Amino acid sequence: MKGRRCDVDGRKNLIPLSARDPEERREIARKGGLASGAARRRKRTFGQVFAALLPRAVALDGLDEIARLAEGLGPITAQEAIALALICKAMKGDTPAFNAIRDTLGEKPGQKVEGALEGRITLALAGELDEFAQ
Rank of each mutant, 00 (worst) to 15 (best):
L60E: 03
P109L: 11
A97R: 05
L73C: 11
P16D: 00
G33M: 07
A78D: 03
R20E: 05
G37L: 12
E128S: 14
R40A: 09
R42K: 13
L60Y: 03
M91K: 15
V58L: 04
G119P: 00
I66S: 08
E131H: 09
R25I: 13
P109W: 02
E131A: 12
K92T: 05
A97C: 08
A67L: 04
G62R: 02
S36W: 06
I87A: 03
F132V: 01
R26P: 05
A57M: 00
I101C: 05
G119T: 09
R68M: 07
E27R: 07
D130L: 15
P75N: 06
P55Y: 05
A59I: 11
D94Q: 06
E65D: 14
M91I: 02
R42Q: 07
P16H: 08
G119N: 01
R68V: 12
S36P: 06
I76T: 03
L84K: 11
E114W: 11
E114M: 09
E65A: 15
V49Y: 14
A59H: 09
K92W: 07
T95I: 15
T77A: 06
K43Y: 13
T95D: 12
L123G: 03
P96A: 09
R40P: 08
G32T: 04
R44N: 10
N99L: 10
